[in-house]
């Protein structure tokens, strides 16, 4: 299922780097944080497998918007962040 633009999501609060060698493309500052789907960018081979030369299934990649105020400031800025996140890192808000 492809998430529709406007869907409220949360980035999983997972820290696989604590468990062993990994390569992940989900920045630490977004883990556990709420965001909104902007659009589905396409399906791309999972970099977490590509990095270890394992067979890499294609996964949906989304542009996800985050409030900078929620992430960092808490002082009412309207500035935002827009980040490519793979679907398997997203959960329902």
């Amino acid at each position: 299922m492809i998430l529709a633009p406007g869907t409220a999501i949360r980035v999983k609060d997972d820290w696989p780097e604590a468990k062993g060698p990994v390569h992940i493309r989900t920045p630490h500052y977004l883990r556990g944080r709420p965001g909104t789907i902007v659009r589905h960018l396409g399906d791309f081979p999972n970099p977490e497998d590509l990095a270890f030369a394992r067979p890499a299934a294609k996964r949906p990649l989304y542009h996800v918007a985050f409030s900078k105020d929620v992430l960092f400031d808490g002082q009412g800025t309207t500035d935002e962040l827009l980040v490519e996140i793979f679907g398997h890192w997203l959960e329902a808000a």
Binding site: W15, E17, A18, P27, H28, Y29, L71, F72
Partner: peptide, 15 residues
């Protein structure tokens, strides 16, 4: 936040 989570050192956003 910088200290509590096991951030990888290349993962530099906002540190």
């Amino acid at each position: 936040m910088d200290q509590e989570k096991p951030r990888a050192h290349h993962d530099m956003g906002g540190i």
